[in-house]
């Protein structure tokens, strides 16, 4: 069985930076396992600006940022197309790669599996099951990686930073959103975003508005919403379900470590309830920028390095 000092699960901003920094600190036996065919994480499909190495000079698009990260980590042991299926009872990892199943062990394991938006199903949003209803993540991939236009006039659900980023993706694909709706009375993003949405994109944000159902026969035709006891039907041909991020917990959800709201419970030194397992980046449940995740990766590297000395 392959054994390493440190195995990092997830090759996004946090995981890659951790590997890079450990290497700089002289710790060489480090492997990054990335299940996608390309490392870089979520920024790979965030085609809009706002990304910067170490959170500085945030003038890069996500894909450029991801490319830069990959360049910086060139030469490190990063294995793409490799999935950790589960932790075995012996504490090793069961891996899948192109050639089949194998097992790997490590002195220290770092969870850097990131985060995803909660789905329509998890939010118990009713109505018909139709194409054209998707999370921001899928929408971005369709537009920026697949060059598709899945709808023309969607409703955007949510008022977080990521919700507003959809306006940029829509503009890129010549899509005109009908409106944004949010259950909260206040935005979960700076309040001037709402003004910007209206002035720069011509899209209004309807607050205290709950999505009741998504309707249509073979494609989305409308959504029913409720606001202040009043029900209203809004015509649209797609729905973007944004935000409400959940830790990508598939690997540890069956109870390897203690967790709270799908995020691993950690100490301020990124330790989980299992002494040799750490967690870093957006898997911890507070959604942060890619640059901020890099900084956490650096911090954990110094912690691990000092422990190893």
């Amino acid at each position: 069985m392959e054994h390493h000092d440190i195995v990092i699960i997830g090759g996004g901003p946090a995981g890659l930076t951790l590997a890079l920094e450990l290497n700089a600190l002289g710790i060489k036996d480090v492997v990054v396992l990335e299940r996608e065919q390309e490392a870089g994480g979520i920024p790979r499909h965030c085609g809009h600006l706002g990304f910067g190495i170490d959170n500085k000079n945030r003038f890069l698009t996500g894909p450029k940022f991801a490319t830069k990260l990959r360049e910086l980590t060139n030469g490190l042991d990063i294995r793409t197309g490799t999935t950790v299926l589960e932790f075995t009872l012996r504490g090793t990892m069961r891996l899948h790669s192109g050639s089949g199943i194998s097992e790997m062990s490590a002195r220290r394991i770092v969870l850097a599996t990131g985060t995803r938006e909660s789905s329509r199903a998890a939010r118990l949003i009713g109505g018909n099951r139709l194409p054209g209803v998707m999370n921001t993540g899928t929408f971005q991939q369709l537009v920026y990686l697949k060059h598709q236009k899945p709808f023309s006039n969607p409703v955007i659900v949510g008022s977080e930073w990521v919700s507003f980023s959809n306006l940029l993706t829509c503009r890129h694909a010549k899509i005109k959103p009908v409106c944004m709706i949010t259950e909260s009375t206040n935005l979960n993003a700076p309040s001037y975003f709402s003004l910007g949405a209206r002035l720069a994109f011509g899209v209004s944000v309807k607050r205290s508005t709950k999505l009741l159902s998504i309707n249509g026969h073979i494609k989305v035709e409308s959504v029913d919403v409720e606001s202040g006891g009043q029900k209203q039907t809004i015509a649209c041909d797609g729905v973007i379900i944004s935000g409400k991020f959940r830790s990508e917990n598939g690997l540890y959800s069956s109870g390897v470590i203690e967790q709270e709201n799908t995020a691993p419970l950690t100490t301020d030194t990124y330790r989980t309830s299992k002494p040799n397992i750490y967690a870093v980046g957006n898997v911890l449940g507070h959604l942060e920028t890619a640059g901020a995740c890099m900084l956490h990766g650096r911090k954990l590297a110094t912690i691990i390095a000092s422990e190893l000395r």
Binding site: S119, N135, T138, Q141, L142
Partner: peptide, 9 residues
């Protein structure tokens, strides 16, 4: 569980 967030596109 992700209902296509990662692989849908």
């Amino acid at each position: 569980r992700c209902q296509g967030f990662y692989c849908g596109a």
